[in-house]
Design a protein around this nucleic acid. Structure first.
Lengths: 185, 185
DNA sequence: GCTTCTTATAGGACACATCCTATATATTAC
DNA sequence: GTAATATATAGGATGTGTCCTATAAGAAGC
């Protein structure tokens, strides 16, 4: 399971609590693997059950106690195994593509509105990517080596490139509709 | 829910059974919305419960009886509403990106192997797209107008373009690793 | 004659993810 | 003073999708 291994990946750099992990997920991998807080805690429990992680309670006087997790040797081995494993390619589910598929039921101006709506979503997505700092100093709490940081930035790069490609395609489609290239019946 | 509306979309062209729908899904939208047989039957039941579809039993002498479904007026209205609706952008989950994110744990030759493995998967994916006939005569049982067919082919086009873009990016990455551009520590 | 395939429908069990809520304490804002 | 926010963990209910199995009968292969 991917979430298990993503968590193992983070734990392999430093010991972390569920609360820490939620913050880290939201600031790093959420664009290709969002994680629910509740699910993170449950998955941490499962990692311990599997023997892949161990937990230590850290007492705090002014705040609730933390449960800090770290990988066991078996967990580190499992992470490396998974990183090299061939993944059964995950089906991409895109409700927007269903809208495109059945767009023939709509009139051209409605189709145009649909594409422009999606294009606007994508443009704001691109803007969100551009707002992410690309400078290693902004991530000093989370990343521990230039190599780690390099692959992190790669995932941003590919995410941006995919969005860019889709947006280009949609803008091209909008032009095609305006040019009357779409059959009417 | 997307599957409900995809089924409604197909029913809006012609009355269909669950068995028909499974075959149609597998030959048309499965690359962006795969559907389990069991789930199709359950969803058809829900469509009837919602008042969006109605069912008619068609007796057959030599084979099991068919339950053929068609949209109600409310179902047609709902389909059009949904086609124009703004969708809460679905989170893209990509386990491969998790592998990239934590690739710093591997040595360069292992990272290279990982990327080449993914590239090979993508090339066979592209080949699969190319094997799909782009000719309307191949789909006469499923598609009913040039306009319908046009949007169908668009979904293939964008699927192919996305794969192509990802493959280009990965091939570029492979070169970067070979050129020693990736930090070692 | 036996097995397998095709047509046809459907439920049980399970996995994974999301949403909402509960609990507890300290700080900060108005 | 009161409300909201931050730190910290976790369970219940629900939604969505997958896997496996059951049922039933004719057709096709060996």
């Amino acid at each position: 399971m991917s979430l298990e291994h993503a968590i193992l990946g983070f734990l392999s750099s430093q010991p972390l609590s569920g609360y820490d992990l939620k913050k880290i997920f939201d600031t790093s991998v959420s664009h290709f693997w969002p994680a629910d807080q509740s699910q993170i805690y449950r998955t941490l429990g499962r990692l311990v059950d599997n023997g892949w992680a161990e937990m230590e309670v850290v007492n705090q006087s002014d705040r609730p106690d933390r449960k800090v997790y770290g990988p066991t040797p078996a967990g580190r081995t499992e992470l490396l195994r998974w990183l090299e494993a061939e993944l059964p390619l995950a089906p991409t589910r895109s409700p927007e593509m269903i809208q495109v598929f059945f767009a023939s039921r709509l009139a051209d101006d409605q189709v145009l509105a649909m594409f422009e709506r999606v294009a606007a979503q994508m443009r704001s997505g691109l803007a969100a990517y551009d707002a992410i700092p690309q400078d290693i100093t902004a991530y000093e709490n989370y990343t521990h080596s230039p190599r780690e940081f390099y692959f992190w930035m790669l995932t941003l790069e590919i995410g941006k490139m995919q969005l860019r490609a889709n947006l280009d395609w949609i803008e091209n489609m909008i032009q095609r509709i305006r040019d009357g290239e779409v059959p009417q019946s």
